[in-house]
Amino acid sequence: MSRPAWSEKPGPVTVTAKAVALTVICLLVTVPFLVVVATSLASPEEVTANGGWVLWPQHPTLDAYREIFQGGQVTRAIGVSAGITIVGTAASLTATTLLAYALSRPQLVGGRKIMLGILFTFLFPPGMIPAFLVVKELGLLDSYAALIAPVLVNVFNLVIIRGFIQGLPAELFEAARLDGASEWKVLRHVVVPLSKAVLAVVGLFYAVSYWNAWFHASIYMSDAKWPVQQLLRTYIISGAQLADPSASEAGMVSAPETVRMAVLVIAIIPIVVIYPFVQRYFVKGVLTGAVKS
């Protein structure tokens, strides 16, 4: 984008002010992450000597990460999080796509009414206690399904996919019907290949929300089945002790700051890794959703 013809060239003061503002904003976002990563890579002695954190480790070491992956509580929690994220994302994406496709077909009797009903649930969520009761009455307490089933379809994601399918040219569907293709074939061979980008974005939205979730785990699951975010919550924010298999005599040891920061890094890494893939699409995705709703 170049400067429009009507706009005057900004003076040196304006340019400097903008540059300073942008630099400060970027530093405010990135420096906290750098502190966390640097602290996780430092030696415990260095961290203690420096008062709890470092910005640049003198003798970088991966000891903290080795300790995490020794097979204790953290290893298991990472496994739980990864499993929930993979299974949950697959289930959510499938259910949402099928629902969005069915609700985008104009010939479906009552489709519009169903969509309105679903949008209504979005405006009036039932609340925590009734949701808890449903999970309890279904016998899902302490089962991993309790972390997926109650959040299976997100209305926002549904609106994004449905809006995208509705935007596909009607002739495509007409041609497929003339060829005698079933709805399944149309979905599988026409709609899904054309919707790859939007499905990828929604899939990544789901993956992020499953990976980041902790509250449902805290009320539905016993601690042996906690995902990594809930583990982080109890032992970094609430300051609980971490069970350490290597310190069996003592049973519990207070994890050094380096280990705590290493768990933080592990919990952030999947987000940072997939981020570059989503960010190309999500602006478009968010806007489609915003316009439609």
Binding site: T94, A95, T96, L98, L99, Y101, A102, L103, R105, Q107, L108, V109, I114, G117, I118, T121, F124, P125, P126, G127, I129, P130, A131, L133, V134, L138, A149, P150, L152, V153, L158, S182, E183, W184, L187
Partner: peptide, 30 residues
């Protein structure tokens, strides 16, 4: 029309069941 669209209704099923159980059912839980 229902018979003709039976496959679409099958597609609808998992998502619709989710909303009926976890939203409508929960609303009754109030």
């Amino acid at each position: 029309r229902l018979v003709r669209d039976r496959l679409l209704w099958l597609f609808l099923l998992p998502g619709l069941a989710y909303f009926l159980i976890f939203h409508l059912g929960a609303a009754l839980g109030m």
